[in-house]
Write a protein that binds this DNA or RNA. Structure first.
Lengths: 213, 213
DNA sequence: ACCTGAACACCGTTCAAGT
DNA sequence: ACCTGAACACCGTTCAAGT
């Protein structure tokens, strides 16, 4: 199994192809852009392209895996910040910004992730990791501040449920026009505040009596 | 513009084609099933099929529009039932059941809805109608029972955000295997209970003191 | 080692021709 | 009026041939 003579060439070619593909997918969608178009945009022949990506699907997979790294600080902020809720809001804002910036491309990725078996499995793995990071971050946050009557596991599941909803909504509004993120994030924060309110007046929790009024 | 000689034939042919397409899409996905396959399944030639559906996209659009009718009673139940929360849970359960029963098909519909401009617009119209019905139903429910400190509009947006998240999750788990709806719906109900808790111990609401313990 | 581009086996859609 | 199916203009992918 011969390794590449110039290992940086392979990496540069992959970048070149990925950039070309992202430009094309963003313009025309995954299924409407042909390999020929990507070849044209990347100034490479079909044969050369297939040397670096064995199929069109693999290109989308590579794009989907691209920006996993830059979310790490967001999780650290949830774990160590003053407010778990604000930390999660920042995570949501980050995601919404990414989605609005390149909604058509992300819509393609989501759609393809729902369609392709292999992509779907890769995505499930990634999602499980993300959930684990979120559980750890929420648990850490709640060790440092008053926590509601809920497990970090359920909290993480609820947060991810809402993040999924948010993503889908931003996609749908963003694929064919501008999206106003403000109200969406405001709704999201309001939901978090109610979901994770501490000291709820439940029957078997210590209750804070409403003193004033 | 000649009308059909036998108006029931057109309807029967559309059903025949739609049923064939749903079977094929469920088996192999939207983009992987060819028009030839649908023709084979429907026992019709390509030309005949194109007489009833001008494109492959129109077939998916027709499938997406198919089961809008049967959700009407669910909204009525929210408006008139004892508990708005239980009504919304029933709506969620209905949606989850539909999605789990034919996850691959619904995943195709969602994916295509994100990809295709015309489909996306039809979907947006449908969604706006749904939201209006939900707002009306929640407002009606809250006129008959204690309501939380929230507008029906925001409540409807939050419910739809969570329903979207739920749908996406069920799709992702269901496209390639069985999905256990129980825990998902339990999370969903728990979220609703917290989101729409009445008499929250906020500073300017009458507060229920925790008497026992 | 890396690349080219013609060729292959398809695809969605159309349309002249049948009944 | 309704249908057929060959034909058209593509598509993703491969592979012999070049450098």
């Amino acid at each position: 199994m011969a390794r590449s003579a110039d290992p940086t060439l392979a990496e540069r070619r992959r970048r070149q192809i990925l950039d070309a593909a992202m430009a094309c997918f963003g313009r025309r969608g995954f299924h409407r852009t042909s390999m020929q178009e990507i070849c044209g945009e990347a100034a490479l022949s079909a044969g050369a392209l297939y040397r670096y990506f064995p199929s069109k699907s693999d290109i989308i997979a590579a794009i989907a895996g691209e920006d996993r790294r830059d979310s790490e600080p967001l999780f650290a902020a949830i774990a160590n910040g003053d407010s778990m809720i604000e930390g999660v809001c920042a995570l949501a804002a980050h995601m919404v910004a990414k989605c609005t910036a390149k909604a058509p491309l992300f819509a393609e990725v989501i759609a393809e992730t729902l369609r392709d078996r292999e992509l779907s499995e890769r995505f499930a793995t990634h999602e499980a990791e993300t959930r684990a990071r979120l559980v750890a971050a929420i648990a850490a946050a709640w060790r440092r501040a008053p926590a509601p009557d809920m497990t970090p596991e359920r909290a993480a599941r609820l947060v991810m449920l809402m993040l999924d909803g948010l993503a889908l909504r931003v996609m749908r509004e963003g694929v064919h026009g501008a999206v106003d993120a403000g109200p969406l994030l405001e709704d999201f924060r309001e939901a978090l505040l109610r979901l994770f309110a501490t000291a709820a007046p439940g029957p078997r929790k210590r209750a804070l009596a409403g003193v004033e009024s």
